[in-house]
Amino acid sequence: MTAASTASAEVLIPSSPSEAIEAFGDGDGIVVIGGGTILMPEIVAGRLVPERALLLSRAGLDAIIREGGTVRIGAGTTLEAVAAEAPEPLATAARQLADPEVRRQATLGGNISTISDGDLQAVLLALDATVRHTGSGGERTEPVASYLRRFGGDDERLALEFGFDEPEAGSYTRLDRPHAHPYTYMAVTAVRAGSATKVAAKGASPGCSRLPAVEQALADGASPEDAAARALDDAEPFDDALASAWYRSRVLPTLVARALADL
């Protein structure tokens, strides 16, 4: 591990996963930098002044392993690699995010760990993914849904690896604004695994969430159109700068129907 130090910041640059885990410790007072595509503008503008930072770019947390029907993706894997090598619908979702230069730098761990609703959070929810992470009390593995609920708390964690079963089929449908860098304001992911279909949305409610009423309707034998009509049962459409609650509530069932049709 190398450590670069100035009066203002000590930056730890681990060269293996075990060094990263040791350097992170209980996470107290340390800022994790994946690709830095969210954090760097904060640091440059002086809104975030880390005293200690952990730079993951050389930590070797970037393997994508697909074997025996399961998928494991290191938290430091770039979105360029996810777009090229991950199964659907994760690859398509990653490919539609930002632009090639940002994707080459941005990591999956950063997208899932950002409080500002990374587009891939809902995709991992639909995939029923787990995350192995470390921090106070050591390593543990839990559903991504629980990891996301931690936001706002003070339990700092270092995500190490995401895991999920290789799905039978998956689809991803999103709305874009006419601009080179749209964060989508609404996207729906559908995944078929065994006899179950799982559906999750970004932009239906604040944060990302599954749509259990749609899933239940499908399990009960409803047609994709009828199931999609249940999308609002679990949504709390909201107003923000990108779309009004009124618009979201009208678009959501259509996107769910499209995602189910594409499965």
């Binding site: 830095g36 760097m40 503008p41 230069e101 940002v102 730098q105 860098h181």
Partner: peptide
């Protein structure tokens, strides 16, 4: 200086990268 325009792009080991998003270390 937020990664959104590409005016700061340089090549890092031959690949284009936003220099405004790149920590020196």
């Amino acid at each position: 200086q937020q990664g959104g325009c590409g005016a700061c792009t340089v090549l890092v080991d031959g690949k284009p990268q936003r220099s405004c998003l790149t920590p020196l270390a």
